[in-house]
Amino acid sequence: MTGETLDNAARIVQLALTPVFLLSGIAALLNVFASRLGRVADQADALADQPDEVTRHARLRLLRWRSIALDWAVVLAALAGTLTCGAVLVLFLGEVRGSSAAMVLFLLFGGAIVLTMGALVAFVLEMLLAARGVRRVVDSSAAR
């Protein structure tokens, strides 16, 4: 291995760190999404024993919308992670093959960023739905 080859390899590894940091962030987001989805499922199970049919139906409908928003967040984040891994792979393969894969690399990494933004938007939607549910419970408790 010549000094120039080693320098090129070190440069590629350094460039690959940015997508790897994004991948770590996406993994953390997926963990949060999975935890929140578990909470939604627990709340739906708890509502199964509630005697008030009207209240139960309204809360289950809200939980359904929350789970849909979280489903989208999970799918978008997982796709973003896949594109990020693809960007790292293209980065390494482009260097090994000696070809310029800049356009593919930009498309994969840019797509990962866009999908991550979409996952965050879906997560914000779920958070707003959760806050709406909390306000409904507080309002109904205050009315009693």
Rank of each mutant, 00 (worst) to 15 (best):
L22W: 07
D7W: 04
A10N: 05
D45S: 15
Q43H: 08
M1Q: 01
V32L: 03
A10L: 13
A16V: 02
Q43L: 11
T2D: 09
R11E: 13
L23G: 06
L37P: 09
P19Q: 00
A34E: 15
M1K: 06
G38P: 06
T5E: 06
A9D: 11
L6Y: 09
G3N: 09
F21T: 15
Q43N: 03
N31Q: 13
V40S: 11
P19L: 06
Q43R: 14
Q14C: 06
V40G: 02
E4P: 02
V20M: 01
F33D: 11
R36A: 15
A9I: 14
R36L: 15
P19R: 00
T18S: 14
L15S: 12
R36W: 12
N31G: 04
F21M: 07
L22N: 01
I12P: 00
D7S: 06
D45Q: 13
P19C: 01
T18E: 13
V13I: 12
M1P: 03
T2I: 02
A10T: 10
Q14A: 07
L23N: 00
M1E: 07
L30K: 12
N8T: 10
S35H: 12
A41C: 06
L15C: 11
R36C: 12
T2V: 05
A34S: 11
D42G: 10
A28K: 01
S24Y: 01
R36T: 15
M1W: 04
L30E: 14
T18P: 09
L23F: 05
A41D: 14
D45L: 13
N31E: 04
A27M: 08
V32W: 07
L22S: 10
N31A: 09
T2C: 04
L17V: 08
L6P: 00
A27P: 00
I26T: 01
R11G: 00
R36V: 11
G38D: 02
M1H: 07
A10M: 08
L6T: 03
A28F: 04
L22F: 15
L29V: 12
V13W: 02
L23P: 04
A9Q: 02
T5Y: 04
D42Q: 09
F21K: 10
N31M: 08
L29E: 11
L37S: 10
Q14I: 00
V40M: 13
L23K: 02
G25M: 01
A16T: 01
M1F: 01
N31R: 13
S35V: 11
V32Y: 03
L23M: 09
N8C: 01
V20K: 06
G3M: 05
G25C: 02
G25P: 00
D7N: 04
R39S: 05
A34T: 10
I12H: 04
D42C: 10
P19G: 05
T5Q: 05
R39A: 06
A10C: 07
A10V: 03
L30Y: 04
Q14W: 12
D7Q: 14
G38T: 13
R39P: 06
L30P: 02
A27F: 12
A44I: 08
I12C: 03
M1R: 05
F21G: 11
D42M: 11
F33L: 11
L37I: 07
A28H: 00
D7H: 11
L23E: 07
L6A: 08
A41G: 13
S35A: 11
D7K: 14
L37Q: 15
